[in-house]
Design a protein around this nucleic acid. Structure first.
Lengths: 101, 101, 101, 101
DNA sequence: GTGGTCTAGACCACG
DNA sequence: GTGGTCTAGACCACG
């Protein structure tokens, strides 16, 4: 087996994040769920998330699950699906803070 | 040959989409059909669609064919000449929080 | 020939723009150069650029050549090579105009 | 099989690059070698490298092999633990136009 | 040697 | 039927 289990899991998550399945700030699958899906112990999943946290790809907080690093929306909005060469249009007009909200 | 085969095929589809031959959400020719029409291997057509998917122009689902990105009608309806996929997120403009809601 | 000459030329430019060979605001090859490179008349090249202008990909001004649509730098900077899922880090900290250095 | 072969290969390389086994500018294993090591077709390896190139992690030139993106030394030298390819354009800070030029 | 394209065909999952 | 992966091998340009 060229890839260890926890590396496989980490890499699978990396791929799914890269594919946009999970965006910045989004909640990732729980350790318990992943352990069941991959038929591994929770310790193995914990190690997989360790790798991703070491890479800076994922952030975790006590009792609040693991999330993709980055704020929701902001960055994604500017680098989403649109091909880069179609970008130039919208002038990054910042949302005017017009009193209300 | 200035253009590789898979680029030719991708660019031809791009052009036909830009020309409105295929609108948002519409079904594109199957890989098998294109392979026959262009007298190329199916793998070459798959690579052409790879390019278009990477561009976000096309979406494909197992067993359900490849389609032009975007919902039927919606985008096209609100646009003039410009192909919908040239319009970057013209909606999105957050609903101005005008007091109430 | 599934692609007409001017479509081939247009699509080649489109591909090269998509590949980043020419960025937003950058000057594209002159009609005279392209005509020679592709062994076609200048009218054919003009037609190719017509297509790209109709697509909104290219802008042309009298005597100033054709350029890729969009401002130089700005947008490219925010959506360059870095994979989208690596983006989140830098907090868009505007360059502090600290007088000195 | 949760991970496709080409994804496994791509992810393995990604991991090894992240671990510092291959630094910026360093030559990566040839497609032929990897194909033999993984007992897969060379086309599968090519696709793995496709993924890494699409991510901007790897650059390849005809006849000159594939290399980790980035110049030798420079990026690595200035970084701590974080793999250089996780650092978005830390240079680039435009020279502040201090009066003159 | 290297990377990349392309073929002809098998295989799989999805519908 | 569909898209996508994968193989084994040929071919090409680059060095």
């Amino acid at each position: 087996m060229p890839l260890l289990k926890y590396e496989q899991i980490a890499d699978d998550l990396r791929t799914r994040i890269a594919n946009g399945e999970f965006g910045p700030g989004e909640l990732l699958p729980s350790g318990r769920d992943l352990a069941e899906q991959w038929s591994v112990s929770r310790a193995t999943v914990v190690k997989a998330y360790d790798v991703l946290r070491a890479d800076g790809l994922v952030v975790a907080r006590q009792g609040a699950g693991s999330r993709v690093h980055g704020r929701r929306g902001a960055d994604r909005a500017s680098c989403g699906r649109t091909p880069s060469w179609l970008k130039p249009r919208h002038g990054r007009r910042a949302v005017p803070a017009t009193g209300g909200a």
